[in-house]
Amino acid sequence: MRSCAGQGIRTSESAVIEPRTDGRFEARLRSGAFVVTAEFSPPDSTDPQDVLRAASRLGEVADALNVTDASGANCHISSVAASAILTRAGYEVIHQVTCRDRNRIALQADLLGANALGIKNILCLTGDDVTVGDHPQSKRVFDLDSIQLLQTARRMRDEGVFLSGRRISPPPRWFLGGADHPFVEPFDYRPQRLAKKILAGAEFFQTQYCFDVARLKDHMQKVRDLGLHERCFILVGLGPLRSERSVTFLQTRVPGVIVPQAVAERMRKTPAARQREEGKRICIEIVQQVREIEGISGIHMMAYQQEDTALEILEETGLGKIRRSSPSGGG
């Protein structure tokens, strides 16, 4: 067991009810360990080996890999297919599902199919709008919103029925999560929205990139005041800034990412050759601060094409030693 496991962030008594699945991700969270997940963007390929190759490095240090669902509204191998390939290879995955591209019939059908393929963790998201992606001309669906999707998935599991009321036998078993957004307006409403998602069925949460720890602390204070930290697991999204340009990219091209002026300034003042190192430093500092916050159960590393930096960050913060989500790792 790692040293941070006993920090008292969450005792197993206070952690939500009995396990939903026999998955390693859920088990790690319920054990009170400080959990690491990593984002995985499926490639533009038809070769399963490409999926496995792309996942191998972060897959070895993360407790679970988030498989994105056409992230940023850009087309790639579908989340369900990539999740299935990785699951079959022994990785622990979190299958991301957005409401952008499918109506309730397709969503329920795909979820059921995912579960039949052994996928146990589902992250229910609204989804970035089509206009930010590579097919801005397409029709946005949003038949359900993320909360309705969560509620639908929970009913499928707990009541064994589709939205129509038709029975599913045997019903799916999955561990449901949602997104928490401490860094975007309306700030005062965000803890209430978290509560609403818990009510709808979410038991774990992941956030967008955190570059503003003060804002996160403020949010978590409100979350604790409402007692919500005892009813869910919250993982904070993180990632290294590669350069001054990546600050601009995140701020202008990725919805929901706020880089505070101070952080942007710090990158700008650093000579170009040392910006990667500085971005890494900033990320390490944030990891260290985040681990001290009561109610935070882990981190979610987003480091697209920056696997090396991500591995160094995990190594230097003492989170990268154990092989976890990979076939050889085990729970």
Binding site: T126, V132, R140, F142, D145, V184, Y189, K196, G256
Partner: peptide
Amino acid sequence: CPKNLRNGPCGGVRGDKTCEV
């Protein structure tokens, strides 16, 4: 809401409180 959300804001709200879309 361009995404027709009925249960609250998405995570794309901009810093100046304007819509992602």
